[in-house]
Each structure stands twice: as structure tokens, then as C-alpha cells.
């Protein structure tokens, strides 16, 4: 516990964290968090590539950052409303499935699914446990399904087989639920000619995609939180970088997201905590979290033009080491800000990032830490070899509504190795992005 703890101090008038360097790198064994909300619908959140996860694929830090940039490009593309049509079928070779196709835009309404955090849910009766990427930046929940008519990528768990579930039902083509897919995915749904079953398609900005039957199924979050008739994609043609997970849990704002589908039960309320390292655990809770303390600070939820599925925030300012950066409020207002569980590194308008990086470097320099080479999109890096612990400036965000949030020390740095520890922020291409 001591390894992962950090403390703030106020020496030299600068507010700093004291960080144990071992806490920046993942441990080899899983240490579950003892803090769990008092709620029946609470799922354990783990990092996809850490020792608390059973999934295999383990990209290196540069690959994670590369995938993260692809996701950010995808979000920006989605907000710009640009798309190009392409087609993917469930099975080109099997006559039975030849008409079961849907048109996929090459740059669709979906964002890349490289999110790092997964939860395990049960699907069907009897239930099949599936590890799904949890994503507040997308809407549709889908998993790979037998018989994988066209293609399934390797996943750790048993692939869901709807024919073995007594609670599975197809969604018909002429239903309102099928029509709703267009706004959730940006793709017009298809229709299976034989069975009139609705066919969904979703394609991500890195060209990963899933196409299959749109169905309803029993979703088991915990033994006491079971939801019937949850609409989900039962994927028959799935390709992409999903890291061995079984699919995606969409927590966006569209009517087909899990948040909206469970609105009557959980009142459009959910919360989560992402663990400080990939070797510890966090949680995702649907419904009111009775553990929410009075110290929680609230900021208004906003909506972004052309981005109704995203959760918008109003950033007003940033402080480094207790010093408020001189950034005009219009810099943040012109493009807006979203909060996203699937983007790794916070992206700021270039003007704001420049001010943040400059002040961070100034304060780190005053502590005497040597610089290191850049790591992919991260350009403010330090060689901390030889230190057991370091002092780093605190970083806090001021949001609309008077909420000021001091980031945890683990939310400031991204380390590939002790000799290359980087400020975990990056700039957008333009202040208008």
C-alpha cells in the first residue's frame, strides 16, 4: 500500500506530490482494491493488459500511445461529421449469409475501441462470462457470437452462443430498436432476408469492425443485478484490435447504450473509479452509489455539437504546483471538452498544453530532474534513474460550476521505464479541435 500511496506537500510554496517510483510501473501480481461501493450493480474494473486481467495481448507503451492517437483522430473525425462508405458482409462465401450485409462507413460514427479498462459481465441463460471494454465514448454493446459465420478474432473466454441461451431473441428489421441503430452507430442497419432479423454494423476509426445480428438478451451484472431484454450486437464478422476482449460495453448517451437501456432501473446514473496501476482494481457501478461522499465536486454536464453521444465538460483553467496558468477561457470554450474512459492521455488545445508543459518543466527543473527523450506523443519526459522517490508539481483542473479537482499523482505521469517518465498530457493539432 505504501508503494502506491503518494502525499502532497507544500514545501517551497509549490504544491507537490511525493511519488514512489516503483508505483509508476506495474507490479507482477494483482492487488485488488479494498474500496468497493455499497451497491448491488458494481463490477470490478481492471486494466486490460495488467496482472488483474486474463487477457493476453500486451502492446508496448509506444503502441498504446499510437492507438490512443488513432482514437483521438477518430473522435475528431466523428465530430466533423465526415464519413466514407464501405461494405462488409457477414459471410461472402456462404450463400445463406450473402444478403446479410450492411454498409460500413470507413470513418464511421464510432470511435476506436482501444480503451484500456475492462469489466466482466454475464450474458444469456445460463450465463456466459465475458470481458468487455467499458467505454463512455461509444454506445453499442456487442460481443462475438457463434457460429462466427464470417470471422471472429481470438478472445480469451468462450465465445457467446445464442443457440445455447434460453433468453436470447432476435430483433426484427421493422422494429423501432432496429431503426435506432443508425443514430448509435452512424450506419444504416441491414436486414436478413430469410429471418427478417436486424443486422447491425459498427466500424471504428482504425478500421476495426463488428457486424452481426441485433438481439436481446439477459445481462447479469452481479447475482442480484440481472437485466432482461438488453439490446446488443451478436457479432458474426469481427475484426480488429480488441486485445482478446470479448467485445464492448457502450456507456455513451444514445438510447441504445447500457445507461439508457437501464434508465428505469438505474435512473441514468453511474460511476466508476479507474485503478492507479494496472496491478490494482477499480469499479463500475450502475445506479446511485451510496458511498459518494460530500467531498464530491460537481460540474455541469454539457453537450458537444455533432457529438450528442459524448459527455461534455466545461474546463475553465489548469494549475501546476498551485500556480494558475495564464490561459484565456476562450481557449477552452472554442472547442469544448469531453470526458472519455477510452482515451488514455488528456488532449488539450495547443495553447493550453504549451502553458502546462512550460510551467511543469520550469518546476521540475527547479527540483533538478534531468530531461529524457520524447515518448511518442509525449514530449515532456524525465530520466529519474537513481531516485527512489521524486517530488512533482500537483496538477489541478477547474471546471464549470466551481469544481476544482486535484489529479491523483498517478494521473500526472506516464512511465515506459524509470529512465523515461513523461508528463501524461498531449496537445491537439489546433486550438479549434
Amino acid at each position: 500500500k505504501q508503494t502506491h500511496e503518494s502525499t502532497q506537500s507544500h514545501r517551497s510554496q509549490l504544491r507537490t506530490y511525493t511519488v514512489q517510483l516503483t508505483s509508476l510501473l506495474p507490479a507482477s501480481s494483482c492487488s485488488p482494491s479494498s474500496i468497493v461501493p455499497n451497491n448491488e450493480a458494481t463490477l470490478k474494473v481492471v486494466h486490460k493488459h495488467g496482472p488483474c486481467s486474463q487477457l493476453q495481448a500486451k502492446p508496448d507503451h509506444a503502441q498504446i500511445l499510437q492507438q490512443d492517437q488513432t482514437r483521438v483522430n477518430s473522435i475528431h473525425s466523428r465530430l466533423s461529421g465526415k464519413s466514407v462508405a464501405a461494405t462488409a458482409a457477414i459471410d461472402d462465401d456462404n450463400p445463406r449469409y450473402q444478403e446479410d450485409s450492411t454498409t460500413l462507413p470507413a470513418k464511421s460514427g464510432a470511435v476506436v475501441s482501444s480503451g484500456n479498462y475492462i469489466v466482466t459481465v454475464g450474458l444469456g441463460t445460463p450465463k456466459t462470462d465475458l470481458s468487455l471494454i467499458f467505454d463512455t465514448g461509444s454506445d453499442i454493446t456487442w460481443t462475438q457470437c457463434e457460429p462466427c459465420a464470417k470471422s471472429c478474432y481470438n478472445q480469451k473466454e468462450t465465445i457467446f452462443d445464442p443457440s445455447k441461451s434460453t433468453s436470447y431473441a432476435n430483433v426484427s428489421c421493422n422494429s423501432a430498436d432496429c431503426s435506432q441503430l443508425k443514430s448509435a452507430t452512424g450506419i444504416t442497419p441491414g436486414c436478413s432476408s430469410g429471418t427478417s432479423t436486424c443486422i447491425y454494423g459498427i466500424q471504428y476509426g482504425d478500421q476495426s469492425f463488428s457486424v452481426g445480428y441485433f438481439g436481446k438478451e439477459r445481462l447479469t451484472l452481479t447475482s442480484s443485478a440481472v437485466i432482461d431484454n438488453v439490446l446488443f450486437g451478436c457479432g458474426q464478422n469481427n475484426q480488429g484490435l480488441f486485445g482478446g476482449s470479448a467485445g464492448l460495453l457502450g456507456l455513451g448517451r444514445n438510447k441504445l447504450s447500457i445507461v439508457e437501456q437501464t434508465a428505469q432501473k438505474y435512473n441514468r446514473y453511474f460511476s466508476y473509479c479507474l485503478p492507479s496501476t494496472s496491478s490494482s482494481t477499480g469499479y463500475l457501478t450502475l445506479g446511485n452509489d451510496r458511498r459518494a461522499s460530500r467531498s464530491v465536486k460537481y460540474t455541469p454536464l454539457t453537450t458537444i455539437p455533432n457529438g450528442a453521444s459524448f459527455y461534455g465538460l466545461q474546463v475553465l483553467g489548469i494549475s501546476v504546483g498551485g500556480k494558475t496558468l495564464s490561459i484565456s477561457a476562450s481557449i477552452f470554450q472554442s472547442a469544448g471538452t469531453i470526458i472519455d474512459s477510452g482515451t488514455v492521455i488528456t488532449r488539450l488545445p495547443p495553447t493550453a498544453y504549451g502553458a502546462l508543459s512550460s510551467e511543469f518543466q520550469k518546476q521540475m527543473s527547479s527540483f533538478g530532474y534531468p530531461k529524457a527523450s520524447a515518448l511518442s506523443i509525449l514530449d515532456t519526459c524525465y530520466d529519474l534513474s537513481g531516485y527512489n522517490s521524486v517530488r512533482i508539481p500537483t496538477i489541478s483542473f477547474s471546471f464549470g460550476g466551481g469544481a476544482t479537482v486535484v489529479l491523483d499523482s498517478t494521473g500526472v505521469l506516464f512511465a515506459s521505464k524509470i529512465s523515461q517518465v513523461c508528463l501524461a498530457f498531449a496537445a491537439n493539432g489546433d486550438d479549434g479541435d
Binding site: 473522435i75 448517451r253 446514473y269 473509479c273 460540474t299 454536464l301 479537482v405
Partner: peptide, 30 residues
């Protein structure tokens, strides 16, 4: 847009009260 990413959300309790039109941040959430 700017994006508040998941590294910066670590250990924060992030609350989405969509009906209430607000997002909450609590420190030391896990």
C-alpha cells in the same frame, strides 16, 4: 475538442448523474 482522458481520471470517483445534468469528481475513490 479537448479530451479528459483515463490517465487523469485514475483514482478519482467519477460520477455521471445524467438526469441531474452533472458530473462529479471525488478524490481517492479506489
Amino acid at each position: 475538442v479537448a479530451i479528459f482522458g483515463n490517465v487523469q481520471q485514475k483514482r478519482l470517483q467519477v460520477i455521471y448523474d445524467i438526469g441531474g445534468g452533472k458530473i462529479g469528481f471525488g478524490q481517492g475513490g479506489c
